[in-house]
């Protein structure tokens, strides 16, 4: 959730960097030294409660992570400088490719599912539908539920032998798959649970976007004889593109960081079939005592996320229409 407003926020900060208006209390050059010191103390009093924790627990560790990534370290013995060896051995290790592949596989399954699902629901709820806020409330329910609960509940629903889903399938004469116990079905199970949890979030974002579209556009299109499909393609989707962009950026950032539901549903198994990058960082640190490699991998993940986000921000000019 903290990542929610990041991309626009940064863009906005860049815009608002020079203070455009000086309030009455601005310190003037001519003021006495004592008054200036007093003002500086006031500024510090307001800033330090947030600046100290951010420096100590975000910025400091971020820099330290670079340092650690250059060392061989098991969290206990003294650190040994190894240069870029951690990065080299990660790149040489086929497991690294696998965890990135699994993570990308998760995203490829998850993103179309939540987007199309969320869009359908938003379109439906945007019509004059009775009890819209009730429906919206129901769809948003899983969003406020913790990932762990969602993972456990789905583990139970998708239990191969005693779960309700396979029981229902058996009732229809279908032999249900082994879900999270089957290497081929483990990731689809995680995707299903994740899409169920997040579809309401996507729907709320897209619904807000739909409601911001000027209804005159549709009237004009109707006068021109455009049918419902034409209106969807030529008006709704282009006008919705800023909201779509937001959903895609956030989903990719969160998708690359997928962890909680994997940890609770499969633990990365069976046989590493659903091992994702963050699970690998966790395991390297706390199971294999390879904190240096874990730090290196976390930087690789960060670099990938940053690159993907930057590419999207650059690429948005081609398809995102701001009014």
């Amino acid at each position: 959730m903290s990542i929610l407003a990041a991309p626009q926020a940064i863009a906005e900060a860049a815009e608002s960097a020079p203070p455009t208006r000086m309030p009455a209390a601005a310190p003037r050059a001519g003021r006495s030294r004592a008054a200036r010191v007093r003002y500086a103390l006031v500024v510090l009093a307001f800033l330090l409660p947030s600046a100290i924790p951010l420096a100590l627990f975000v910025i400091g560790p971020m820099i330290a992570a670079v340092w650690i990534s250059l060392h061989d370290w098991n969290l206990i013995a003294p650190m040994r400088f190894v240069g870029l060896d951690n990065f080299a051995s990660l790149l040489a290790d086929p497991a690294t490719g696998d965890v990135f592949l699994h993570t990308v596989g998760y995203i490829i399954g998850y993103l179309p599912l939540v987007y199309v699902g969320g869009l359908l629901l938003a379109l439906a709820l945007n019509q004059a539908l009775k009890g819209r806020s009730l429906w919206r409330g129901i769809y948003f329910l899983p969003v406020v539920t913790s990932w762990i609960v969602v993972a456990l509940v789905w583990r139970w629903l998708l239990n191969p032998s005693t779960g309700i889903v396979n029981t229902a399938l058996a009732g229809l004469g279908i032999d249900g798959p082994g879900w999270w116990t089957d290497p081929a079905w483990a990731m689809p199970s995680i995707v299903l649970a994740s899409a169920w949890k997040d579809v309401g979030f996507v729907m709320v974002i897209l619904l807000a976007g739909l409601q911001a579209i000027n209804p005159d556009l549709y009237d004009a299109a109707r006068v021109d004889g455009a049918g419902p499909w034409r209106r969807l393609w030529s008006i709704t989707l282009p006008m919705l593109s800023p909201s779509t962009f937001f959903v895609v950026v956030i989903s990719l950032i969160n998708g690359f960081q997928v962890f909680d539901q994997v940890y609770a549903m499969t633990g990365g198994g069976p046989g590493g079939a659903s091992q994702v990058v963050v699970q690998q960082i966790y395991d390297l640190t706390f199971r294999y005592g390879a904190a240096g490699e874990a730090a290196a991998l976390s930087w690789m993940l960060f670099a990938v996320i940053l690159a993907v986000t930057v590419v999207q921000i650059i690429g948005q000019k081609r398809w995102v229409h701001y009014v």
């Binding site: 903290s2 990542i3 407003a5 990041a6 926020a9 940064i10 100590l56 627990f57 975000v58 400091g60 560790p61 971020m62 330290a64 992570a65 650690i68 969290l75 960081q257 962890f259 990058v277 963050v278 960082i281 966790y282 640190t285 904190a291 874990a294 730090a295 976390s298 930087w299 993940l301 960060f302 996320i305 940053l306 986000t309």
Partner: peptide, 15 residues
């Protein structure tokens, strides 16, 4: 806001 928690886990733990 852009820094994922995962990047901070190892140093934060040590700190």
């Amino acid at each position: 806001m852009m820094v994922p928690l995962q990047v901070l886990i190892v140093p934060l733990f040590a700190e």
